[in-house]
């Protein structure tokens, strides 16, 4: 026996039951676990994004600290250099202003001057070590 596809009959009820079963199985065993997995993934993505944001903030702060430290170190280095130059210049002036008892020159006069200088700087003032000044 045959009929056309346009005839409505009890097949409708069977089709309805079959689809309701499919719907129930999909909703319970497929869609719900998938939604749960998708939500879990979204939470993980959000957490990772939040973590990345915090790391970026930390990095920015660390970079700022680094820049500030480097700038401070440069300033201090500059100050030290300035101080060194000033002291050096001052010493240079003092050295120039102080009259020198000898004059470094070449030849016999030069050697005499070096000897005098050596005696002036020597702790024993030119006397041999161990010699008593009273004797």
């Amino acid at each position: 026996m045959t009929a056309t596809f346009m005839t409505l009959n009890a097949t409708l009820v069977v089709e309805l039951v079959v689809f309701v079963i499919v719907l129930a199985v999909l909703a319970r065993f497929v869609v719900r676990p998938l939604q749960k997995a998708m939500r879990q993934r979204q939470i993980e993505i959000d957490q990772a994004a939040e973590k990345a944001r915090r790391v970026e903030e930390l990095l920015a702060r660390a970079e700022a600290d680094y820049e500030a430290t480097v700038a401070r170190a440069r300033r201090e280095a500059q100050q030290i250099i300035e101080t060194g130059r000033r002291v050096g210049s001052q010493m240079e002036h003092e050295r120039r202003d102080t009259p020198r008892p000898w004059k470094v020159s070449s030849g016999a006069h030069g050697r005499t001057a070096m000897a005098l200088k050596s005696r002036a700087l020597h702790p024993s003032n030119g006397r041999p070590f161990g010699a008593d000044s009273d004797r």
Binding site: F5, M6, L8, N9, T11, L12, E15, L16
Partner: peptide, 10 residues
């Protein structure tokens, strides 16, 4: 078949 589409529509 009209039976399935009608079932779904209903």
């Amino acid at each position: 078949d009209l039976n399935l589409t009608a079932a779904l529509a209903l």
